[in-house]
Amino acid sequence: MTTLGVIGGTGWLAGALLRPALTSGFISPSNLVLSSRSGGADGFEAWSDIRFTTDNAVLAAACNVVILSVRPEDLGTLDLDLSGKLVISVMARVKAKALMDRFGTGRIIRAMPNASAEQGLSFTPWFATSEVTVKDEAFADGFFACSGKTTRLKAENELDYFTALTGSGPAFIAAFADVMIRDAVANGVSLQVADAAVRQLFLGAATWMAHASESPAETVKVFTDYGGTTAAGLTAMKAADIETPIRKGLAASAKRAATA
């Protein structure tokens, strides 16, 4: 029987991952222990059998799988013996070797979900060390599948790039949407209408693209070749070199993720 403990369990990311897993029945509330500084149950009122604690050692003693969902800067406050346990980290920048050395276990999985997890729309790549068992892998993949799509990576350093590409991606899309909203307002559209229009645009476009047979590049070519109003906008964006800032943003985020 798997008993899962989540350190930082009432934080936003842990909650976004846990609530879909609880709702689907992948995790039983009675087999879940959450620790936080407050020990509160905010966001989990629907599951009265979950245990809450402020003591990470109590959590470690009760669980055979431990998820680390804290800021990398807070890792130094965790002084725990997790030998013999599966440790799953959703922290950026902290390498598997550092986790092995700190917690005394070779069974480490590092994963990088994103802010769309609660809606079941995250893309979560994960990497497993050599001591991780087939059962461990199945648990991790099943857990993250509750909140979207998953893929296993062959090399840990790939996680640094995915931290930028999909881990940070929702914020990058939000930055693009913000520019569109502000431009609409500058052109006389009310903020309320502009916000609603752009949110619906991104929802519709993302849904359409997820199911389209064409690649994004092929879609751009179709509209550009058509030569209409969309082509005019795409041509202007290309002339302004829209590609370089995007690549620079991904590179900067990936570089930060690679910095221990």
Rank of each mutant, 00 (worst) to 15 (best):
M209R: 09
K248E: 15
I173Y: 15
L32D: 00
G148N: 07
M180R: 04
V94N: 09
I108Y: 12
S130P: 12
K238C: 02
A240S: 14
V65G: 02
R93N: 13
C146N: 09
I27K: 07
R107E: 07
S69L: 07
V189R: 11
V220L: 12
K238G: 04
T10I: 06
L80F: 00
T166N: 12
Y226H: 13
N64H: 04
W126C: 09
S69Y: 11
V193T: 06
T133E: 14
T133P: 14
F103W: 08
G84V: 09
V33L: 05
G167E: 05
F103P: 00
I108E: 13
A164H: 01
L86W: 10
S38W: 09
A46E: 12
L13A: 10
G15R: 15
I181E: 11
G9N: 08
R199C: 13
T105G: 02
G106Q: 14
G120V: 05
A117V: 07
D225I: 11
A46Q: 11
M1H: 15
I7D: 05
F44H: 03
T10G: 07
L203M: 15
A138S: 10
A155G: 06
T229D: 11
F26S: 09
G167R: 02
R51L: 13
L34F: 07
A196Y: 02
A252K: 12
L18Q: 10
V189K: 09
G142M: 10
S147T: 13
S253I: 03
K85Y: 03
A186E: 11
Q192R: 14
G148E: 06
D55R: 11
I246C: 08
D79Y: 00
C63W: 01
K238M: 05
R247L: 15
T166W: 07
Y226G: 05
D49K: 04
R93F: 02
L13S: 08
R247G: 09
R51S: 15
D49M: 00
P216W: 04
A177F: 06
V134C: 04
A260R: 12
F127E: 01
I50W: 00
I173M: 13
I242H: 14
N31P: 08
L99D: 05
R71M: 04
T244N: 10
E218P: 02
A62K: 09
K85Q: 09
D55I: 02
R51T: 15
S24K: 13
R256I: 13
S122Y: 03
V66I: 14
A231Q: 11
L191Y: 13
L34T: 04
D81S: 01
A96T: 11
K85C: 01
K149I: 03
M180H: 02
F26H: 05
K238F: 06
K85T: 06
I181C: 03
D225R: 14
G43T: 01
A197N: 00
T230Q: 04
N56A: 01
G204L: 00
G142E: 07
A194I: 07
L99S: 01
L191Q: 14
I7Q: 06
V193A: 12
L250Q: 01
P170V: 10
D183I: 07
S24V: 08
E137F: 01
L191H: 15
I108R: 13
G106F: 04
K238L: 09
Q192C: 11
A57G: 13
T224V: 06
R19F: 04
L80A: 02
S36V: 14
